[in-house]
Design a protein around this nucleic acid. Structure first.
Lengths: 168, 168
DNA sequence: TATTGTTATACTCTATAACTATA
DNA sequence: TATAGTTATAGAGTATAACAATA
């Protein structure tokens, strides 16, 4: 007998991730933002002045896709592209004052979203679930997504193992 | 202080879901299948003869998108569209013999994928995590995705609360 | 010679509307 | 009048290649 779909952790995280992202997108629409914008704003707030390449690595996307993402936020006046102090090819991406406000509002929307997602769990189970998910993310070597200290130079952001969808 | 991204359950399930889906897609590519095909095959195997509309509801997609999905599997000889016994507008979607074989192989790929995802957890923690995720999915009223009994007529598949991404 | 940011292109996916045949 | 399936269309997202500037 095959494992039922609903007993598969991979399927469950996929389905829950899609659901959470859709709900979050609906909430963020009032702020004219998308979940990826919130992710990027959070990254920049946690490490100001990083290059677009570094930010793209942290989000697991290509640097080409990062261009339009930074464009979006810059046109809204939420971030700034400055000259990189050490590399004239690169931009140093910084948070603008309006970006801090927008991030604060988006964080409140994320709080609501997480509260809704965890509605059926008590405090102890919430802690257990988050700890287990963090262990999975760590084991999968997913980008830390928010470097907390000054010691995050070169070892992060492993190259994803070519998750191509099609062979044709 | 705002909650770090990596402490947010919504972000964690999103990131892990994306990762698991990408890894699974890479494994399934050898079978010329995508994760959504596996999902659909599993649904049909669990409830033969359902209409495309019912299958679309279970997967949380529009019936328009279901057409090409069933087309894909039918062209590969994995499923069959038969006349619905009670409604001549509808198709009854059934699994072909080759579909059972393909599903068995895809289930083995899913087993590998889940094992990789859970690599860092012992058996007890795996059970705890799956149980917690199932409670979240149940609370979010996500489609059961695999009706186990004959008593799943009309009450399932709640309409998703318009998760539109854009206002413009 | 390699890397950063950028643009262009094609491809996939999604969302919506319309049409038909049935109910 | 409403629903199941289908088709067509436009939009968004993704992946790849190429280029200029700089390392």
């Amino acid at each position: 007998m095959a494992t039922p779909l609903t007993d598969r952790p991979g399927f469950l995280v996929f389905q829950l991730g899609r659901h959470a992202a859709a709900r979050f997108a609906a909430r963020l629409a009032a702020l004219d933002l998308q979940p990826r914008h919130f992710w990027l704003l959070s990254l920049i707030a946690g490490a100001e002045g990083e290059t677009q390449q570094q930010l793209a690595d942290a989000m697991g996307i290509h640097r080409n896709a990062m261009v339009s993402l930074v464009d979006d936020l810059e046109h809204r006046g939420l971030v700034e592209r400055r000259r990189h102090p050490a590399d004239r090819r690169a931009h140093a991406v910084h948070l603008a004052a309006a970006g801090r406000d927008a991030l604060a509002r988006a964080n409140r929307a994320a709080d609501e979203n997480d509260a809704e997602l965890l509605a059926g769990l008590d405090a102890a189970d919430r802690r257990r679930l988050i700890a287990l998910l963090q262990r999975l993310a760590h084991e999968a070597q997913l980008a830390p997504a928010m470097p907390t200290g000054p010691d995050h130079a070169a070892e992060g952001a492993p190259t994803p193992p070519e998750p191509r969808g099609r062979t044709t």
